[in-house]
Design a binder for these strands. Structure first.
Lengths: 238, 238
DNA sequence: TAGTGGTCTAGACCACATA
DNA sequence: ATGTGGTCTAGACCACTAG
C-alpha cells in the first residue's frame, strides 16, 4: 500500500471524515480502540495514536473505563474554552447574555474573504452583550454565512443561554473546532459606550475572531469589545 | 493524590532533573533514546514517550537523524516564541531594542509575591523600548529578582540584541520555560506616550507577564505597553 | 464480571543526516 | 555505513467504570 503519510495520520483522517460526516455526533461514544483497529486493519497502538492526537486537539474526549466520546460545546467543560476573559479578582461570575439585534445584511469585502463567501452571499449579523455579574462587560458583533445557517434566530440563540457554539452544533450540525484572535486596544465610541455602560473614550480591548470547523472551513467572524476595568484577557504562553 | 505515577512520567521527571542540574545545557544534544532507555532501565518506547512530552512542551527539540537537543532561546526559531505582537500587514519587520533604564529597586508587595521573594529582597528594574520597523511599538518594564541575577547590566542585555531570555540563559543559567499573560486596554500616560511617540490618551494594550523556569519557579515579572495602531496581539485558540 | 482506556515491553523496520 | 529519531506490531497486564 503506497503511503505518503504515517499510518496513524491516515487513520486520524478517516476518523475525522466520520466525524465530519456525522457518523458519530457530539456527545456520542465512538467505537472502542479495539474495534477501530479492526475496522481500519491496524494494530491497537496505531489506532490509539490517531485518537491520541484528536484528543489532544479537543476533538475527542477519552474517559477511562467508559469510552471515547465526540467533544460537544454543550458539555459544561467546553462552555468557556473560547472565552479568555477573567475577573481580576474572585471566581467566574454567573454569565448572562442578551441579544440586541439579529438581521441579514451584506458582508464587507474583508469579511467575505475571511468567510470564503461566494459573490453576493449574505451574512447574518448578531449583536449581543454579555454580563459578567452586574455590568455588561462584552459587546459582541457576530457574522455568520446566511446560507449555512438558514433559520438562525435571536430566540434560538438565546434558548441556548447565549452559547453560540452549542446552538450551531445542536441546530445546524456545525462544530467549531479552533479560532484565531487578533487583539487591539481601542477607544469606546458612543455605540459601544452606551451598551457597556462606560464613558465614551474608555479604553476597550477589541478582539477580532475567525473560527473554523472541519477542514479549516471558516464559519464565523466576530468582533468583541471587552471592558477590562475589572477583567483581563488571560493567555498562557507555552 | 495519586501515589503512583506512570513510568514514563517518572522518566520525564528524571530527565527534567538532569536539565535543571545542567547536566545537559541549552543547545546540547542529550543521549539517544536507546541510551536513555538503558540508563533508566526501561524500554525504548517508554523513554520515547517521556521525551515526547518534553518535546511537546518545547523543552527538548527532536531532529530526525541527528538527535534530541535541549531547547535554547538563542536559536532563531525560539526568539519570537513569546512575542505575540504582529504587524497588521506585511511580514515581521526587523526588530530593534533600546534599554532606557536599568537599576536596583524595591519590589511592590504584589511583585514580591509573584516572584516569591524573601522579605527585603531587591529587584532589578529594566525599562526598554522595542522598535518594529520605524516607530517604538512596545515599552517594557521588566523586574527580575536581584539575587538570582547578580551582574545583570544594560550592556549585557543589549549585547544579546535585547533577547532577554537568551541573556538569562547564557549568562545566568536560567531557562525560561513558560509564561502567563494578562491583557488590558489602557490609556497612554505621559511617560508611555513620550517613549512610544504617541499622544497622551492613545489606547494601549497593557500586557502583564509572569514567566517561569523549572519547577514552576517564577523568574520575571514584566509589564508591556503595546501600541496597536498598526500591530495586533495574535492568539490561537485550540 | 466484562468492557473500556492506559501502560509497558521487545523487536522489526523505515526515514533521515552525517561521515 | 552507522547512528539517530520515527513508525508499527502483537501481546501482556493494569486501572477504571458500570451492570
Amino acid at each position: 500500500m503506497p503511503t505518503f503519510a504515517p499510518l496513524y495520520r491516515q487513520i486520524r483522517a478517516l476518523i475525522l471524515r466520520s466525524l465530519k460526516d456525522r457518523e458519530w455526533k457530539p456527545g456520542d461514544m465512538i467505537p472502542s480502540e479495539t474495534e477501530l483497529a479492526a475496522r481500519f486493519g491496524v494494530s491497537h497502538g496505531t489506532a490509539r495514536r490517531a485518537i491520541d492526537e484528536l484528543a489532544a486537539e479537543n476533538v475527542l474526549v477519552r474517559r477511562q473505563g467508559r469510552g471515547t466520546f465526540v467533544a460537544s460545546h454543550l458539555q459544561r467543560v467546553n462552555q468557556f474554552r473560547f472565552l479568555k476573559l477573567r475577573p481580576d479578582e474572585g471566581d467566574l461570575e454567573s454569565l448572562g447574555g442578551k441579544v440586541l439585534e439579529c438581521r441579514r445584511t451584506r458582508p464587507t469585502a474583508t469579511m467575505a474573504r475571511q468567510l470564503r463567501l461566494r459573490p453576493g452571499e449574505a451574512v447574518i449579523l448578531t449583536r449581543r452583550v454579555l454580563r459578567f455579574g452586574e455590568k455588561g462587560t462584552v459587546l459582541d458583533e457576530i457574522w455568520l454565512p446566511a446560507e449555512r445557517f438558514k433559520g438562525f434566530s435571536a430566540e434560538g440563540f438565546e434558548s441556548y443561554q447565549g452559547l453560540l457554539y452549542g446552538y450551531l452544533e445542536a441546530e445546524f450540525g456545525v462544530q467549531m473546532l479552533r479560532a484565531e484572535e487578533r487583539l487591539k486596544a481601542v477607544l469606546a465610541q458612543s455605540e459601544q459606550a452606551e451598551v457597556l455602560g462606560v464613558e465614551v473614550g474608555t479604553p476597550l480591548l477589541q478582539v477580532d475572531r475567525v473560527s473554523f470547523t472541519y477542514e479549516e472551513q471558516p464559519v464565523e467572524v466576530r468582533r468583541g469589545y471587552y471592558d477590562t476595568a475589572r477583567h483581563h484577557y488571560f493567555n498562557h504562553l507555552g
